[in-house]
Design a protein around this nucleic acid. Structure first.
Length: 554
RNA sequence: GGCGACGUAGCUCAGUUGGUGAGAGCGCUCGACUCAUAAUCGAGAGGUCGACAGUUCGAAUCUGUCCGUCGCUACCA
């Protein structure tokens, strides 16, 4: 039975490099899930893209003296390169800067407006007279009322860490002109989230299999009472507002617009397929939609986006939002800007892609935050990935090469022990499939590695290197069995380790289904090269690649 | 301050709705093997499950208090 499954993945913010925490939080788990579902025969649509709007990008652009588009383009290109090198298997990776995205955003906005879920309200905001524009919180500086820090921003004091409102600042001044801003009335559109509180609460109560921290967090939000939220801003950079009664200088705010990316990307994908209506298969009826995000994104995906979908009507709400917790580096929250943890690019300079994928998949913060370091990644790679799996492949292929005439042997007559091993592997495949389907990805990887260990144990028990001298026929059967078992383990690990998996295509055949395949007898088996490189930790650390200082900041 | 969590073997982490003697990987000790990237396999040692009090026939698992850690509380997403 083939099911349409939308794999919706958090939109990375194109304001700077993403780090391993982001990778472990959303992109890697989504990719493992999607790769498995495709092998299982389901119709996967995996989409995401770069989020290119919002204030931090304009702040960075101002600081560097370039346009926001240049910042967004730079990091979008970097992300695309990261995904390529990591093997993240998008059906479409786009951005929120496309014309299509604006069209879809306008459709959502206008429909919600027409349905009465968006209204217009007036508030007071700081206005820079010289620059003739309203100022986002981050564009206002002043003295922190709590600690006296003179460079505090309108949204937060970076010295004492407290969050602020701009009107709390002593001696506020504009970051653009340095003049004293004045409060002026401004109009903005608001999403009437409060319209959906009851319905969303009821919907959450029907969710089964959701992670506890995701449900707790979401219910907490609803119990506190949903606040209507402004969805436009006084900005020049963003999707424009599709009605003109607000006047110029207003844009749709990123959090409203970015989540729409899941839908606009699906539509863009359909258009590229030459079948503009094809997206409906994943958004209507009996489709599954699974949103892979970090925990900081939970309310946007369990409250706000579902609310928008309810208000729009006719589209599926998320089936599951298996949000991850954080990966910390030596106890500190990863942050590229503070030099804590490794960016994806830095990590790819130190480790092979599959090595990174393995180490992170083994440490995914599915239940609680997990801690990682360069040393820990290296240890996982050397003592688990290389020792258990890479070495198993190498020892089996080496023996087949040297004792089976350098080709895949026929099955021969397998004994009960041989068949028991293969049964064990097939059971593991069923288990791994179930675990990945439930997004228990660490457990699935563990199951796959245990299967590899079982093959190692089988070899130690049957000792084909000795049989080769006394009973070549039996040795051939054992090695053929071991190779068939390796074929199954390789499939179990394929969603996690796509590069090393496909490196075995020549000997073991290409993967097309979630079912162990018998290697084709007679297939040439050359002298193997190691599947993974061992990590030289001392060298890495001597080069200063310690992933930052770690520890806690602030 | 408010909110959400977390504190389980040396390290990193699992422990569904409370109930056979508390688990895994790695590390450590001992043993087997030597085909394989000094890799593998087996056995073992090691924890009063942060502290205190309570509910219960019975709690790592529920309640309260305390100590410690983290995240959120943004016109970041």
């Amino acid at each position: 039975m083939s099911i349409p499954i939308l794999v919706a993945v958090a939109w990375p913010y194109a304001s700077g490099s993403r780090h391993l925490g982001h990778l472990a939080g959303a992109y890697l788990p989504a990719d493992v899930f999607a790769r498995y579902q495709r092998l299982a025969g389901n119709r996967v649509l995996m989409v995401s893209g770069s989020d290119v709007h919002g204030t931090p990008i304009t702040v960075r652009a101002d600081a560097e003296g370039v346009t926001p588009a240049e910042i967004a383009d730079r990091y979008h290109a970097e992300f695309v390169g990261d995904w390529e090198r990591l093997g993240i298997s998008w059906d479409l990776y786009t951005s929120t800067g496309t014309a299509n995205h604006a069209v879809v955003t306008h459709d959502l906005f206008l429909t919600l407006l027409q349905n009465g879920h968006i209204d217009k309200r007036t508030s007071e905001q700081y206005f820079d007279v010289d620059a003739a524009r309203f100022l986002p919180d981050r564009y206002i500086e002043g003295t922190c009322p709590h600690c006296g820090y003179t460079e505090a921003r309108g949204d937060q004091c970076e010295d004492c860490g407290r969050t602020l409102d701009p009107d709390e600042l002593v001696d506020p001044r504009s970051r653009i002109t340095g003049t004293v801003p004045e409060l002026r009335e401004t109009e903005h559109f608001f999403l009437r989230l409060s319209d959906f509180g009851e319905e969303l609460g009821g919907w959450l109560d029907t969710r089964e299999g959701w992670r506890r921290h995701v449900l707790n967090f979401s219910r907490g939000w609803i119990e506190e009472g949903l606040q209507d939220r402004a969805i436009t801003r006084d900005l020049e950079w963003g999707v424009d507002v599709p009605v003109d009664d607000l006047g110029p200088g207003k844009r749709i705010y990123v959090w409203f617009e970015a989540v729409i990316g899941y839908l606009s990307a699906s539509k863009e994908w359909a258009q590229r397929q030459g079948d503009p209506e094809a997206w409906r298969e994943w958004w209507e009826g009996d489709a599954r939609s699974v949103y892979f995000i970090g925990k900081d994104n939970i309310p946007f995906h369990t409250i706000i986006w579902p609310g928008m979908l309810l208000g729009y009507g006719g589209l599926n709400l998320p089936t599951d939002v298996p949000a991850n917790n954080y990966v910390t580096f030596k106890g500190g929250k990863a942050s590229a800007s503070r030099g804590v943890g490794l960016t994806i690019g830095e990590a790819l300079g130190l480790f092979e892609a599959d090595a990174i994928r393995y180490a992170l998949a083994a440490s995914l913060p599915e239940q609680s935050d997990t801690d990682i370091s360069v040393e820990e990644i290296g240890r996982r790679v050397n003592e688990e990935l290389v020792a258990t799996w890479g070495n198993l492949v190498n020892r089996v292929l080496s023996m087949v090469h040297s004792t089976c005439g350098a080709e895949v042997p026929g099955p021969g007559s397998r004994t009960g022990d041989d068949l028991a091993l293969l049964d064990r592997i097939d059971e593991a495949l069923v288990r791994v499939g179930g675990q990945i389907d439930r997004v228990e990805l660490r457990a699935g990887l563990r199951t796959g590695m245990e299967a590899a260990a079982a093959v190692n144990a089988y070899l130690n028990a049957t000792e084909p290197w000795r049989l080769a001298k006394v009973d070549p026929e039996r040795a051939s059967v054992v090695l053929g069995t071991a190779l068939a078992a390796v074929s199954g383990v390789r499939l179990a690990l394929a969603p996690y380790l796509p590069f090393s998996s496909s490196a075995l295509d020549d000997v073991l055949g290409e993967l097309h289904a979630w079912r162990r395949i018998e290697p084709e007898p007679g297939t040439p088996v050359p002298k193997p090269t190691p599947l993974f490189l061992k990590v030289n930790l001392e060298e890495l650390l001597a080069d200063g690649a310690d992933g930052g200082r770690g520890g806690t900041v602030g």
